[in-house]
């Protein structure tokens, strides 16, 4: 499957999964699981930063349109799309790994731990920014912090399960690209 088709399918499936499955689950008022931003976590290395941000905005805006609450998810998605390259630069083990592999995964980032840090940081930032924007309108600080932490844990667990269920086969490409 080409990169374009793969990403379009991912976009649609993750949005539908998020809105029609996860949003119907009422775990607890503190916990809201999110998984749709996996689209951003899984975006190929070779997309340039402008494209990444525009796609992230589109993703967030689509979910916002479904929820009829414009801006919240778009803002959080744009933020993690902007930060993503910096985190990848810090975490990627050796020079050129981002051209040897197509997209971030446990294998391409040289182990489960760096990938976990990558996913965990982005999830935390996404949730934090999202709930902060929501909390500006209603809620208090403790509620916000607790909600961010708990939701991050649940979302990470879901991401982990998704990674196990849909293993992405990362081919090693020669670095002659």
């Amino acid at each position: 499957m080409s990169t374009l088709v793969k990403n379009i399918v991912r976009f649609a499936l993750l949005i539908l999964m998020q809105f029609f499955v996860l949003d119907k689950i009422h775990l607890h008022q503190m916990v809201t699981p999110y998984i749709y931003f996996l689209f951003i976590l899984w975006m190929p290395f070779k997309f340039n930063r402008t494209l990444q941000m525009v796609l992230a905005f589109a993703l967030g805006f689509t979910l916002d349109s479904f929820r009829h609450s414009p801006g919240f998810h778009a803002a959080a998605c744009v933020l993690i799309a902007y930060i993503r390259p910096f985190i990848i630069n810090v975490l990627i083990p050796q020079e050129g790994a981002d051209s040897n592999f197509e997209e971030p995964s446990a294998r391409s980032m040289g182990g489960i731990f760096p990938y976990l840090v990558y996913a965990g940081l982005l999830t935390l930032i996404h949730h934090g920014w999202l709930f902060l924007l929501e909390a500006l309108e209603f809620g208090n600080a403790w509620y916000f912090i607790l909600k961010t932490l708990l939701s991050t844990i649940i979302s990470l667990a879901l991401i982990f399960i998704t990674e196990l269920l849909f293993s992405r086969k990362q081919k090693f490409r020669t670095n002659t690209v």
């Binding site: 402008t50 941000m53 525009v54 801006g71 778009a74």
Partner: peptide
């Protein structure tokens, strides 16, 4: 600084949408 400016622009647009929620229908 194109990327940073784009980032700022998008964020500002999002926050504008959030604040002007009731005007969203005109957007």
């Amino acid at each position: 600084y194109f990327n940073f400016l784009l980032f700022l622009l998008l964020q500002i647009y999002c926050i504008y949408l959030i604040i002007n929620y009731n005007k969203y229908h005109q957007a």
